[in-house]
Structures are given as structure tokens and as C-alpha cells.
């Protein structure tokens, strides 16, 4: 099962490091990262494998949202199916 993590907000040092460390602690494997910075606005998308994830997905998503709040970012983890169903016929 795959989850998509999106991070949006003002750019600052160490965003990728913080999210990556959080994923590693919970055995979530990062498969792909893309990011862009547009006039200080940061958008990162991570595709992750959550098959070996420790704990529930709800806790994982809550933890990421909390991490985002501390840094003034919007961080979301969502099952990949919402994107697949919405954008593919």
C-alpha cells in the first residue's frame, strides 16, 4: 500500500530531513520525492510504501500534521487511491 505525503508552506532549512526522519522512525519507506520552490513557497510530494509501517495510519497522519504545525507547514499523508480515483477514468 502506498501513501502520498504532501508538504506545503514557506521554505525553511531541514524540511525534508524532518519528514524523512519521521518516516524512518515508523519504518515508512520513501520511494520517490519531488519538490519545487516558487518564490519562497515550498511544495514537496513524497511517495511512500507503508506496508511495514509501525502503528496505525491515523496515528502516522496525525503525527505528520503535528510536525507541520510546529514548523508552520501543511503536511498531509493520504492513501494514494484518492488521487488515482479522482484523476484517472
Amino acid at each position: 500500500m502506498k501513501a502520498v505525503i504532501t508538504v506545503t508552506g514557506r521554505d525553511s532549512v531541514g524540511i525534508i530531513a524532518a519528514v524523512s526522519a519521521y518516516c524512518a522512525e515508523r519504518s515508512v519507506n520513501i520511494q520517490d520525492i519531488s519538490q519545487s520552490v516558487l518564490s519562497e513557497f515550498f511544495a514537496m510530494i513524497m511517495l511512500t510504501d507503508i506496508d511495514s509501517m509501525k502503528g496505525t495510519f491515523a496515528d502516522f497522519a496525525d503525527g505528520l500534521a503535528e510536525l507541520g504545525r510546529k514548523r508552520g507547514l501543511d503536511i498531509r499523508a493520504m492513501h494514494e487511491d484518492i488521487f488515482n480515483t479522482m484523476h484517472h477514468v
Partner: peptide, 16 residues
């Protein structure tokens, strides 16, 4: 395959 623009569009729909 997931497309960055599609993902950001979905996030925007939910957030904004």
C-alpha cells in the same frame, strides 16, 4: 502513475 499537478489539485480542493 501519480502526477504532481493532480496531487496538488486534490490538496487544494480539500484545503482551499
Amino acid at each position: 502513475m501519480l502526477n504532481t499537478a493532480d496531487i496538488l489539485e486534490t490538496i487544494q480542493m480539500i484545503r482551499e
